[in-house]
């Protein structure tokens, strides 16, 4: 039997990491999971760096499920302006919501989070997950991954509280790839002194991962083309 991710969620869950690691995919699926658990859920896209690959792409799936989406009005448009959605304060101010925050890639993307950090810290009910992917060329080993993660913490002034393992090769991810990435995830976790909160796995591979813990099924793929 594999063990699926199952725990009482914090009021605010933030996903950050190296860009291209799978943050948006993890955040979108987590928001859908929260909603399925019966929580009023909102997801905020704070990615001001990359106007191409954004939570907004998943607009249809999220709105169909009844998740409130907060994204820059310019996302997916032709406007190349780094803008934060004004509504984003709602996720820190409206404590009746369960909030998911999709933080932009790398330290540059995480900079935008800084303005919300004091409120998030004051409330104190949050999980700040670092999304890691061993198949991304600049985070292929624990040390280079940690280097990127430390840059992010410095930029947004919020220390991570856990790891979201998201090692994937896009559509070609195999069960073997996920199994082979466990040692890497363990090493990052030990060196950072953080728990592995979840391991993202494409839903169709779950049966092949006997004995693995905290599996978080990825049912919705955020694809650009």
């Amino acid at each position: 039997m594999t063990k699926l991710f199952d725990r009482k969620p914090h009021r605010v869950t933030l996903f950050a990491g190296h860009y291209g690691s799978g943050k948006t995919t993890a955040a979108v699926n987590y928001a859908l999971w929260l909603k399925a658990q019966g929580h009023d859920t909102a997801i905020a896209d704070l990615d001001i760096v990359n106007p191409y690959f954004r939570t907004r792409d998943s607009l249809d799936a999220l709105s169909a499920a009844g998740v409130r989406l907060i994204a820059s009005p310019f996302a997916g448009s032709n406007v190349d302006a780094p803008a934060l959605p004004g509504e984003a304060y709602a996720v820190v101010e409206d404590t009746s919501l369960h909030a998911v925050i999709d933080v932009g890639g790398d330290d540059r993307g995480a900079l935008a989070l800084g303005r919300y950090v004091p409120a998030i810290k004051d409330e104190g009910d949050y999980d700040f997950l670092c999304v890691i992917n061993r198949f991304r060329p600049l985070t292929q080993d624990a040390d280079s991954t940690i280097e990127v993660l430390r840059e992010i913490e410095t930029a947004c002034k919020l220390p991570f509280t856990g790891i979201c393992a998201c090692s994937n090769l896009g559509d070609l991810t195999s069960a073997e790839d996920i199994i082979a990435s466990q040692a890497y995830t363990q090493e990052v976790a030990e060196k950072m002194g953080l728990p592995i909160v979840m391991t993202c796995v494409p839903a169709h591979l779950i049966d092949k991962l006997e004995g693995m813990e905290n599996i978080f099924p990825i049912r919705h793929r955020t694809k650009f083309i």
């Binding site: 291209g20 992917n133 198949f135 991304r136 060329p137 292929q140 994937n168 090769l169 896009g170 070609l172």
Partner: peptide, 14 residues
């Protein structure tokens, strides 16, 4: 081993 890359990154690494 294969890695997951954006087109622009793959170009730069190559």
């Amino acid at each position: 081993e294969k890695v997951l890359m954006k087109g622009n990154e793959a170009l730069a690494e190559a």
